[in-house]
Simulated assay, not measured.
Amino acid sequence: MDQRISFITLAVHDLDATRAFYVGALGWSPEVDVPGEVLMIKVGDRLVLSLWDEAAFEAEVGAIRRGPGVVPLTLAHNVATPAEVDQVLATARDAGADPVQSAVQRDWGGYTGYFADPDGYRWEIAYNPGPIGQDVLP
């Protein structure tokens, strides 16, 4: 098996609100948009973010675990400078995202903050000055 990820699929409660956030407010372009079912957005050279209506997700994958707390998953968007971290976080806030945590200087040398999309999925916006952080930049 090749060492790679092709799709990241997230179950979403309200696909219309999700579309309004990612496509309408953030300006991302869908590759596939099936109302009431799925929204697919190419987010990398060979990577797709698939945002799937909860009912359709559960019908194929199985019951979703529900309860208090945060889903134990984050998505990260790395940028080239700390100023870009602040800019992206401001754009997300302006789009209606829950700000979660303002950007701060981290002990490991990076600068990161978080926002949550309409379903509460946490996005880390990060400046990582190390080699792995630089490798993921376009």
Score class of each variant (00 low, 15 high):
residue 25 A to G: 13
residue 53 D to Q: 04
residue 26 L to Q: 02
residue 81 T to L: 01
residue 9 T to Y: 13
residue 100 V to F: 07
residue 129 P to G: 10
residue 23 V to N: 02
residue 12 V to W: 01
residue 110 G to K: 01
residue 55 A to F: 02
residue 111 Y to L: 00
residue 101 Q to P: 09
residue 24 G to M: 02
residue 80 A to W: 13
residue 97 A to V: 13
residue 6 S to N: 12
residue 92 A to S: 02
residue 68 P to K: 15
residue 60 E to H: 10
residue 34 V to N: 01
residue 41 I to H: 01
residue 15 L to Y: 01
residue 78 N to E: 13
residue 4 R to F: 09
residue 136 V to K: 00
residue 84 E to L: 05
residue 36 G to N: 10
residue 120 G to S: 07
residue 8 I to E: 06
residue 113 G to F: 04
residue 98 D to E: 06
residue 57 F to K: 02
residue 78 N to M: 06
residue 56 A to N: 10
residue 70 V to P: 07
residue 31 E to R: 14
residue 56 A to E: 00
residue 63 A to N: 13
residue 71 V to C: 04
residue 45 D to F: 10
residue 21 F to Q: 09
residue 76 A to V: 09
residue 38 V to P: 14
residue 129 P to K: 12
residue 92 A to P: 12
residue 88 V to C: 10
residue 57 F to R: 06
residue 41 I to N: 02
residue 10 L to I: 15
residue 74 T to D: 00
residue 29 S to Y: 10
residue 3 Q to L: 05
residue 95 A to V: 15
residue 82 P to Y: 12
residue 78 N to K: 09
residue 87 Q to C: 02
residue 124 E to F: 05
residue 121 Y to G: 08
residue 64 I to D: 14
residue 108 W to F: 12
residue 24 G to D: 15
residue 59 A to L: 01
residue 63 A to L: 01
residue 1 M to C: 12
residue 43 V to G: 05
residue 42 K to H: 07
residue 51 L to K: 01
residue 8 I to R: 11
residue 116 A to T: 10
residue 81 T to D: 07
residue 86 D to L: 00
residue 108 W to C: 01
residue 30 P to D: 14
residue 107 D to P: 07
residue 47 L to S: 07
residue 80 A to E: 06
residue 48 V to N: 10
residue 5 I to P: 12
residue 118 P to D: 08
residue 132 I to W: 08
residue 23 V to S: 03
residue 7 F to C: 07
residue 131 P to M: 04
residue 57 F to L: 07
residue 14 D to C: 07
residue 96 G to F: 04
residue 93 R to C: 11
residue 45 D to Q: 04
residue 103 A to R: 04
residue 22 Y to I: 03
residue 134 Q to G: 15
residue 3 Q to A: 05
residue 65 R to Q: 09
residue 51 L to T: 03
residue 84 E to M: 01
residue 26 L to G: 12
residue 9 T to D: 08
residue 115 F to T: 05
residue 85 V to L: 00
residue 27 G to L: 06
residue 112 T to L: 14
residue 85 V to G: 00
residue 136 V to S: 09
residue 123 W to Y: 10
residue 107 D to E: 10
residue 131 P to W: 03
residue 62 G to E: 04
residue 18 T to M: 14
residue 82 P to G: 04
residue 61 V to E: 06
residue 95 A to E: 11
residue 134 Q to L: 06
residue 96 G to L: 08
residue 33 D to F: 03
residue 9 T to W: 15
residue 84 E to R: 11
residue 35 P to L: 03
residue 64 I to T: 15
residue 92 A to N: 08
residue 56 A to C: 08
residue 55 A to G: 04
residue 98 D to W: 01
residue 135 D to M: 08
residue 29 S to H: 15
residue 75 L to T: 11
residue 133 G to T: 09
residue 57 F to E: 00
residue 25 A to Y: 01
residue 99 P to Y: 14
residue 98 D to Y: 14
residue 69 G to V: 09
residue 107 D to G: 15
residue 63 A to C: 00
residue 105 Q to G: 11
residue 68 P to R: 07
residue 78 N to G: 05
residue 55 A to Y: 08
residue 125 I to Q: 04
residue 3 Q to I: 11
residue 46 R to C: 04
residue 98 D to G: 14
residue 129 P to Y: 03
residue 128 N to C: 01
residue 29 S to A: 03
residue 67 G to K: 15
residue 78 N to Q: 08
residue 124 E to W: 01
residue 127 Y to R: 02
residue 51 L to M: 12
residue 81 T to Q: 06
residue 88 V to W: 12
